[in-house]
Simulated assay, not measured.
Amino acid sequence: MHSLIDQSRNALACKTAINADGFGVAWYGEREAPCIYKDIRPAWSDANLRQIAHHVRARLFLAHVRASTGTATTQDNCHPFAVGPWSFMHNGQIGGYERIRKKLDAEIPDALYRHRVGNTDSEALFLIALSQGLQDDPVGGMVRAVAKAQRLAEQAGGLPAMRFAACWSNGHEIFAARYASDHLAPTLFYRTFDDGICIVSEPFDEVRDAWCEVPPGTAIRVTATGVDMLGLDLGLCPA
């Protein structure tokens, strides 16, 4: 958790060095659904976060610090987002989101729209992915959602149409992907340790050769046995 706090005020590889528009943590314990802790304060100023990180033990967790790309700094807009057993966090943006927000929301079916508590593009992308079969096809469902959002952005002239680095999990596996409609995909790395695997936006130690960069246009699937590399086929979503 020290690295999360450090990156919130001194990120080296992200678009902005300061990520002070809130933070969030999702962790999986004995229950199927994750526990979520979020706040709009910067991660470095929250004493409760330090206490939680010191005491909680979890087999799998997601953690995120936020730099808003235009939507309000509210607790509901902080990542990770969760529905049932699934949690999701995202770095990046959908181009011209303010012009396509209504159309993007229209892609979320009524059964899932009740989970739309914030107004970010990231939350919309997550709910669309759930509607596209994320539960049974975790990578394909996300790819179809990204493709739908990218087409809407392109039609509205939003540039760059899509920048996407994200992690999502059902509590048993973690999926992550890196993609952009231009050549500037947000960074994504992973590393295997003796006691687990970390997926990060930037390495949190000086052993840089130990970290593997996820290539643009690639997804990874992390299980207890290791990391699988998967391609991203944006053609999965028909025009």
Rank of each mutant, 00 (worst) to 15 (best):
G95H: 03
E107H: 14
E154M: 14
I128R: 07
A47T: 13
I108A: 05
R66H: 06
A156N: 01
I94M: 03
A47C: 00
V65P: 02
G133C: 09
D105R: 14
L49N: 00
D105Q: 15
S68D: 00
F61V: 03
D39P: 03
A67C: 12
R66N: 03
F126A: 03
W44K: 10
R114M: 08
E107S: 13
D110L: 13
L159K: 13
V83E: 09
R99L: 13
K103G: 08
E154V: 12
Q75D: 12
R57K: 13
H55T: 13
H115R: 02
L104N: 06
T74V: 08
Q93I: 02
Q75P: 04
A72G: 10
R59A: 13
D121C: 03
A161K: 02
G84W: 02
G141C: 07
I40Q: 08
M89K: 04
Q75I: 11
I52E: 04
F126L: 07
K148H: 11
D105T: 10
H115C: 07
V146H: 11
V56L: 01
E98F: 12
L159G: 07
V139I: 15
I36D: 09
H79P: 04
I36G: 09
V65F: 01
P42S: 01
I128L: 00
S68T: 08
N48T: 13
A124C: 14
D105G: 14
R144D: 08
F61P: 06
R50T: 07
P160M: 00
N48L: 14
I100S: 06
L127Y: 02
F164G: 06
C35L: 13
R101T: 11
A147C: 09
I36M: 08
T73K: 14
M89S: 13
A47G: 03
L159M: 14
R59P: 09
S45A: 07
H90T: 03
I100R: 06
W86L: 10
L104R: 10
S45N: 02
R50F: 07
L104E: 08
T73E: 10
H90R: 00
G133W: 10
F88I: 06
A67T: 12
L104G: 07
F88K: 01
Q93T: 12
F88Q: 04
D46Q: 06
Y37R: 13
H55N: 12
R41A: 12
M142G: 05
I52W: 10
Q132Y: 05
T69K: 01
A153E: 01
Q155R: 13
K102L: 12
A156C: 06
E98M: 08
